[in-house]
Structures are given as C-alpha cells and as structure tokens.
C-alpha cells in the first residue's frame, strides 16, 4: 500500500518516469524501503489500471515513458495524507514512509499528519491499556492452587500486551520527536531567510515556500 501511495505522492509533484521514481523514492525515504525496478513498474501498471495514474502514449527521445497523476489519483492521495495509518492492517513502515514524504511534499500539512497519527495511536494505546487492566485483575484474582495454570496463562498474555504497549509508546515518542525537529527546523529556516533578506536581497523563492506552508 505504501509503495503505491508513495509513488503517487512523488507524481503529485510532477510527471516522472519509472527509473527516476525509483531513485526519488529511495532518496526521499532515506533508503528505508529499497525498491526494485520491477516493483515500480508493476505498481505503476496497477495504478494506471485503477485510473489513478495516466501514462504518455509515446516514449521520449531516450525511450522513457512518462507517468502523471489523474484527478482521481490526486483525490486518493489527499485522503491518504489526512487518514492515520491503520496500524492493525498495514506494516508499520508505512508510517515512516508517509512521514518522510510528507516533510518535503508540497502542500502537505506535516503537523496535521503527525497529529492525526498520534491521536490514532493513543486511542490504540488506551484500548490496549483496558485489555491490560482486565488481564492484571484476572492474574491477581487467579493466584496459586487450581487456578495456577490460569495465572501463568494470564501472565503470558500480559507480556504480549506489554509488547504492543511498548511499540505504541515508541511510536508516539517518535512522532513527538518528529514534531520538535520540524519546529526547530522551521525556526532555523526563518532565521536564514531573515539573514538573507538583510544581507543581500535574494529572490523570494530561495526559501522553499512549501516548507513554510507545511510547518506553520
């Protein structure tokens, strides 16, 4: 799912072709998800089939076929940015990739992406905590004697739940970290822009407008 949407996110920035999409994807996600060319092309094929991406009729002078996002693709991508990653049905890495792309994708409000993910993860953490609480009560109620096996079973279950709690907790902490790094970066960018403006008048587009929009 995330490769598909990752490629769509890149195409939202302008038409591109397979090999370049592959290298952009790897670069932009810090190499967390290496792709092979075959994977890129089969994904693009499916996107074309689903009407989310359109391809040029003819290859360019170097034999490359260019792909671009359709209106339906634009809409689907917009939904992705604003919907928290459903951690129960997709690999966790989707979140890493989504955030890595969101930082540089123009017109995407990274703070909103972080915030809605954190809310969703905290909800998950709360539900896990409810299960944990029930398990704690059962484990304490069971004790020794004939209930001994029950108690051990309860203990194992508690440890499983704790594993999920630790994972969710780590995700929330990472999201907090992302947010504070972005905030520091926004301050630094603004300062550089001010310095440039006073030093020597520079073209306004030296400071990527998309960044400012993202971070405010």
């Amino acid at each position: 799912m995330s490769v598909r949407l990752g490629l769509m996110a890149l195409l939202a920035e302008g038409p591109s072709y397979g090999a370049r999409l592959r290298s952009d994807f790897e670069q932009r996600t810090g190499g967390t998800w290496p792709l092979n060319v075959g994977q890129v092309y089969t994904t693009l094929e499916r996107l074309v089939r689903d009407g989310l991406v359109a391809q040029d009729e003819e290859a360019d002078a170097e034999g490359r076929i260019s792909y671009r996002l359709t209106d339906a693709g634009v809409a689907e991508l917009a939904t992705w940015w604003t919907t928290p990653v459903d951690r129960t049905s997709t690999p966790r890495d989707e979140l890493t990739i989504k955030l890595a792309l969101a930082v540089t994708a123009p017109g995407v409000d990274v703070h909103r992406v972080v915030q809605s993910q954190r809310t969703s993860t905290l909800r998950h953490l709360r539900d896990l905590t409810r299960l944990k609480r029930d398990a704690l009560e059962r484990a304490e109620g069971a004790g020794a004697g004939p209930d001994h096996a029950d108690a051990e079973h309860g203990l194992a279950w508690l440890l499983v739940l704790e594993n999920l709690v630790f994972a969710a907790e780590a995700e929330v902490r990472w999201l907090d970290h992302v947010e504070s790094v972005l905030a520091r970066h926004a301050v630094a960018t603004a300062r550089t822009a001010r310095l440039r403006a006073t030093d020597a008048p520079a073209p306004a587009d030296l400071v990527p407008a998309a960044h400012e929009g993202n971070l405010s």
């Binding site: 129960t88 049905s89 915030q115 909800r123 998950h124 539900d127 896990l128 409810r130 299960l131």
Partner: peptide
C-alpha cells in the same frame, strides 16, 4: 488541537493484532 474519541471494540483490536 485534538482529542481522542470513543474506544475501539476490544474484539476488533484482538482480531486485528492477531492477524
């Protein structure tokens, strides 16, 4: 800026995590 709402049902959660 945000607030968590209602709880997921525990059964759904278990099914999903188990899967």
């Amino acid at each position: 800026v945000d607030s968590t709402g209602g709880a997921e049902r525990a059964e759904d959660l278990l099914a999903a995590d188990g899967a």
